[in-house]
Design a protein around this nucleic acid. Structure first.
Lengths: 239, 239
DNA sequence: CGTTATGTTGATTCAGATCAAGAGCGGTGG
DNA sequence: CCACCGCTCTTGATCTGAATCAACATAACG
């Protein structure tokens, strides 16, 4: 059930079997499911447990008064969607399902017990939230200082690497994002996403049909995006 | 020495005198100073201690190959500049001094001991990093979906609140950022910052002379920015 | 005091938004 | 089973916010 999560942890640090057992036991035994488009967590709520994605894709987003939306994260299997709520108490953004998803929940009380009895695990959970902010920083760089094609190419590079860690992609993978959602993530209009996508496709960097992406030339895609995976902190995998 | 830091913590949670003592003891006894413009931490380095701002302003930034710069955070007294390096190991960005600064350092080994012996303190440190990412999320929203004047006004609102917590501002305060640096923070050009600043000044929302800002109409500034401080998680202070 | 950073202004260009309309398609209910 | 409705994708035309380029003023500074 937690394979993708363990893969993600083990990409960065050693996890002994005791710790695996403690983590596994901390989760509620029965997974939950949500349909595409539904909200797992709403802005302003005060969750009493945190949620880990087992399958499917979710997104953090904020809605502005004028109806505009900004997506601040896309989560894949193995990612926590709302670990911050363990300490931040009130959700300052919502989390929605981009596809049908199944998730596992951990009561905050159990997380607290982990930080008290298993400091190393506590640090690993802390690490997961730091990784999220590292990714967020890279998004800021993309929004502020990269052109639309670079930014979009960068996003795809990131998804390739993250999905590879989750064991879900090599150079071909499903990405259940509409062009509108992609625009909301990259801070661009859907129309411009459409044209930028065409530009990159015409450079034969990847194909994107339906929800399926196939990377045709990983090296050229990386250099088009000026992608440097340092910020993903894959310590145990040589760059 | 650590007043601003304690104020920041106590804005969100209770800290007993034991914990205060433990924290104080964890820091190296003698503060360091850096001149404006110098780097406290460089990209690619592996710090063995983390740094807390005592006085002055610092910034996280990334330099791109083409010379563009993106600032991803501005830190004020009481903020950690590189707490993530405790767990992320390799710095994926640099930290520079925006003004002359004094800082206190904590060896990572001491932080580790805190997470092992004082889980509540460990969670408070974790909390600090979550607050950083919450702020970062708001920056993403600003860059993606707010207009330049809104974004800039929002930034000023944020600084007012954060400096107030640090005990350094009411509605008048120093902000040692050049227009170029502001541009690098908001993802705009210096020229456009200049014009946007003039626009907001002409609305009599604030004055900005030299490095001194004075907010003239806090309510109108907030509504101009559509500023909602929820993301700053001032749990113990009623909104 | 020259010298270098910073702020200001104007002219021009350009990336990306907005507006509008049609095409494909997938689901739903009569 | 098919007509219809609502998304999503696509395309073209136009507009605009912000970048860029260039010059100069002013302030800070060794």
């Amino acid at each position: 059930m937690l394979e993708a999560f363990f893969r993600k942890l083990e990409q960065r640090d050693v996890l002994n079997s005791d710790e695996r057992a403690v983590l596994t036991a901390a989760f509620d035994p029965v997974p939950k499911s949500y349909p595409a488009g539904s909200d797992l967590v709403t802005e302003g709520s005060r969750p009493s447990s945190s949620t880990l994605v087992l399958s499917g894709f979710t997104t953090r987003y904020r809605l502005l008064e004028d109806g505009k939306r900004q997506i601040t994260a896309v989560h894949v299997p193995g990612d926590f969607v709302d670990l911050p709520s363990f300490l931040l108490k009130v959700m300052d953004h919502a989390v929605g399902a981009l596809s049908p998803v199944t998730v596992a929940t951990v009561p905050h009380a159990n997380l607290r017990r982990i930080t008290e009895g298993y400091p190393h695990l506590g640090r690993m959970l802390w690490f997961m939230t730091l990784l999220d902010s590292s990714i967020l920083r890279e998004w800021v760089v993309g929004m502020g200082r990269r052109t639309a094609p670079e930014h979009l190419a960068h996003f795809i590079c990131e998804m390739v690497v993250r999905l590879r860690i989750a064991g879900l992609a090599d150079l071909s993978f499903d990405l259940p994002l509409t062009q509108m959602e992609l625009g909301d993530a990259l801070g661009l209009s859907a129309v411009h996403i459409n044209r930028t996508l065409q530009e990159l496709r015409s450079e034969h960097l990847f194909t994107w049909e339906g929800q399926r992406i196939e990377v045709l030339d990983w090296d050229r895609l990386k250099s088009r995006a000026r992608f440097d995976p340092l910020y993903l902190h894959l310590e145990r995998e040589p760059r």
